[in-house]
Design a protein around this nucleic acid. Sequence first.
DNA 1: AAGCTCACCAACCGCACATCT
DNA 2: CAGATGTGCGGTTGGTGAGCT
Length: 261
Amino acid sequence: MKMVQEEIIRKGPWTEQEDFNLVCFVGLFGDRRWDFIAKVSGLNRTGKSCRLRWVNYLHPGLKRGKMTPQEERLVLELHSKWGNRWSRIARKLPGRTDNEIKNYWRTHMRKKAQEKKRAASPSSSSSHCSSSSNITSTEGGASFYDTGGLEIKASSGAKKTGGDHQEQEDEKKRDQKEYSLDDIWKDINLPEVNSIEPVYNGYSEEACNIISCPLMASPAPWEYCPDSLWKMDEEESKMFLPTTSDQFLSCFEYGKASLTG
DNA sequence: AAGCTCACCAACCGCACATCT
DNA sequence: CAGATGTGCGGTTGGTGAGCT
């Protein structure tokens, strides 16, 4: 590596200004070239950091707030099938990110596991423990949320499967397996979930109506353009431009200047 | 009121795969 | 085809606020 970057890479929480800049540049250049965006935007962040911020927080389609019972069931069901494939699970929950689901699982499952453990421990029925041993045996090496998807450990090398069609094949195979979390989930009294469907029913509109999201209480420019900053209609742009056009234009100019040198 | 614990969430890190040159 | 670079994913950590003692 010859290009030694002496610039200080910023870390930690993002500021509003950084968010704004990032949104601007993603609008300009799309959400693929993160390294490029990181450089051009002058954010002094890594591409990875920019991507993460966008994916987990700034993406217009994100749904915020508490998981609905429907989503909870779906997460649990999918996790029992796929294990810790958070990104894959997230794809079945529009508006939710893998990080969000991961965090949710981490906290809620720990809670449930603890409750379960507490309920089971006084009687200390050793045979009973076997089915849910995974979730309670963190001391055994596995982290508590390493509960589902036994194949995850078997195929730890295959962290990423190939294309989507390959994934679907894998899914079929995986569906025929049994996983320990099934047992755990039975313990937790999962209501019947017959089919795995994205949680569109009753939520799709909510998911799209990002303005209604609690966290979106203070309108930001990107809220008005779910797909891209460039796809806002006239009315939306009127809402957007009066307050932020200067900043946005400056971003644009900055990006252009960076491109042309 | 102060200290402590816990839950939640944002963000970073390392690894592996994909794409480019 | 191999190495470099970019991207995505899963695991982990640290900060913060709410609730409890």
